[in-house]
Computed example of a mutant assay.
Amino acid sequence: MDKVDLWTWLDEILREEAIQSIQSRISTSIRAMKLEKHLSIAGAYKLACKELDHLECWEAGSLINGRPLGDDSFEYFRNWIILQGKELHRQIASNPDSLATATFRFGTLDHPFFEELSNLGTIGEIDTQRLGSLDSVSAYALLPDSPALWDWKDADVSRWHLKLPLLWSRFGSKFQPNHEEMEAKVECALVPGLGLIRVGDRVLHTKGFGEGRVLEVISVDGACRIEFSTGVKVMPLSPRFFELLN
């Protein structure tokens, strides 16, 4: 097993002196990974994401963002925290309010989102019998995403100034709690290059997740909750990554 630590891998990428952007360097590194190395890093990545998957972290990200985070934006927010390294990840997981005074090695709180790390979770169909025995971290990469144990509807904005006093002092005046917008139901979406998307449609994710079924159309621009064999994901439908099967 070509076991590589997630944090070491990130540290090496951020230390590189290259013309390529960090986004490009990470994407290139993921594409070049052997499967065993990918599983080792992807398992650690999923565990790191899970440690940040709690209500107070979502509240902190939403407060900084100025409005409630959706599934994708919360994932990209956690990616950005992970990119800061092991120590800051551990600190934010236990105390999200410390984001207000932290020192970051990449980006700022003006835009605390990073998409490319999510590509670690795109592994696709593999023959697990050919891999032999897997350590627990690598095996975790192959497990379906488990549902969150919290609900954003439990967030009490009236108490955020007590739960997150440092972040509230910086961002509280600009926060707009548009919960109604998140609850709005959309029946269908017209996506250029794919056509009309409805609940129940079968789609094919061409970059690794395979065939899936649309469980919910979240927005008119094509964001959908999709059930794959590996679990449920919220993703924007785009002809770059999807085909409509029916």
Rank of each mutant, 00 (worst) to 15 (best):
W9I: 03
N65H: 13
D135L: 01
L190W: 06
L166Y: 04
T122R: 14
K163G: 08
P177C: 06
I30D: 10
S133T: 12
D53L: 12
L162V: 15
L215R: 15
P144E: 03
V217W: 02
H161A: 11
L162C: 07
L166I: 15
V4L: 08
L52C: 15
F209I: 02
L215M: 12
A189L: 07
A32P: 01
G66D: 04
D72Y: 09
I197K: 06
D154N: 14
A155I: 14
L167K: 10
P68D: 04
Q91T: 15
I197N: 14
I22T: 15
R240N: 15
S238F: 11
L83R: 11
V137Y: 04
D151F: 00
G222A: 07
V232A: 08
Q20P: 10
E16T: 05
L190F: 06
D71L: 07
L39Y: 08
V137T: 12
Q23T: 07
S238E: 06
A44K: 03
R105P: 02
V220Y: 01
A189R: 01
L120A: 06
I19Y: 14
L143S: 05
L244E: 05
T122A: 12
S133H: 10
L83E: 09
V191Y: 08
Y76R: 14
S238Y: 08
T101P: 00
P68F: 01
N246V: 02
E187A: 15
G43W: 01
W152T: 14
A155W: 01
R159T: 15
E17C: 02
W168T: 13
L88E: 10
K34A: 05
D156S: 14
R225E: 12
S118F: 07
I126P: 04
I123D: 03
Q20I: 03
E181S: 13
K3Q: 11
L167N: 09
S169T: 15
L109A: 12
S94E: 11
I92W: 02
W80V: 10
L245N: 14
A42C: 08
G210D: 05
V232C: 08
I64Y: 00
K34G: 04
D11F: 00
D221I: 00
Y45N: 07
D71V: 11
K50R: 15
P192Y: 01
I13R: 13
E59S: 14
R31L: 06
L88Y: 04
I226M: 11
I226R: 10
T8C: 07
I123G: 00
M235A: 09
T122W: 10
D127F: 00
D71G: 05
G222T: 00
G66K: 08
G210V: 08
G61Q: 11
P147S: 07
